[in-house]
Amino acid sequence: MKTLIALFITLFGFAGMAEAQSDSESLFVVLTSDDAETQMMAMVLATQSLNKDVPVRVLLCSDAGMLALKNHESPSFAPPDRSPKQLLDGLIDRGVQVDVCGIFLPNRDYTEVDLTQGIGTAAPPEVAEFMKQKGVRYFTF
């Protein structure tokens, strides 16, 4: 619990930094961890950044790709009494581009049909083009 409180304190500091950023900057959140608390903080920080008008993009790789599946459930955390999956769905509803890594589906027994609506599969050349843009800030978990 102390760790979560410390992370929320960090969150508010980060949100203040995001407010000071220029309009040309965007946040690229790359999530690989299967740890639900880590996933939650990634989604909280992405949401807070979006709330501060910072464009956000999310890439789910490795075990974090499971968040992209329709039937995946994740535990809720207080506050805000929501789960990483619920926050991810909220980001999608607000127009955030969310993709799984290009190698996620082909190396598991899932297809694009199994993905939550609004989640795509990243094309490595396109992601590389996005990453090299000036003003893209990386946030990896």
Rank of each mutant, 00 (worst) to 15 (best):
S33K: 03
P79A: 05
L69C: 00
M66A: 05
L67Q: 03
Y110E: 00
C101M: 07
S33F: 04
S76G: 08
A42C: 05
T111R: 02
E37Q: 15
L115I: 08
F104S: 02
V98E: 05
C101L: 06
M43V: 00
N107F: 04
P106V: 03
L59Q: 10
D63E: 13
A78P: 07
T38N: 07
L115T: 04
D114F: 14
R94F: 03
V58L: 09
D114K: 11
A64M: 08
V58I: 15
R57T: 02
S33I: 05
A36R: 06
A36T: 10
D109C: 03
M40T: 04
D35C: 05
E37T: 15
V44F: 14
R57Y: 02
P80G: 13
S74I: 12
C61H: 04
S83Q: 08
L67C: 05
D23Q: 14
R108S: 14
N51K: 14
G65I: 11
Q39L: 02
V54C: 02
T111W: 03
D34N: 10
L67T: 04
F104E: 03
D81R: 11
M40R: 06
V98A: 00
V96K: 12
V58M: 10
A64S: 11
D63L: 09
F77W: 13
F28G: 00
R94Q: 13
K70H: 07
V113P: 00
T32S: 06
E112M: 09
V44Y: 11
S49Y: 12
A64R: 02
T32W: 02
F104G: 01
P106Y: 06
M43R: 09
P55I: 00
V98L: 07
S76E: 14
D81G: 11
L27S: 01
T47L: 08
D34R: 10
S62Q: 12
E25D: 12
P106C: 14
L87I: 08
N51S: 13
F104Y: 15
L31H: 05
N71Q: 06
Q48S: 15
V30H: 13
Y110D: 00
V44D: 11
E112I: 05
S83C: 09
L45T: 01
V98K: 08
S74W: 03
V56T: 00
D89P: 05
V44R: 11
F28A: 14
V98S: 01
D81P: 01
G65A: 06
D63R: 06
L27D: 01
D89C: 08
N71G: 09
V58A: 04
D53W: 07
E37F: 02
L27M: 13
D53C: 00
L105T: 06
N71A: 10
M40S: 14
Y110S: 03
Q86M: 13
F104H: 04
N51A: 15
H72Y: 13
D35S: 12
V113I: 09
P106S: 11
L67D: 02
Q86L: 10
D99R: 15
S24H: 15
P106N: 06
V29C: 04
A42L: 02
T111N: 02
L27E: 00
S74R: 01
E112W: 04
L88I: 00
I92H: 11
A36K: 06
L91V: 02
K52H: 14
P80Y: 04
D89F: 08
D23A: 15
P84E: 08
D99W: 12
E37R: 14
G95S: 07
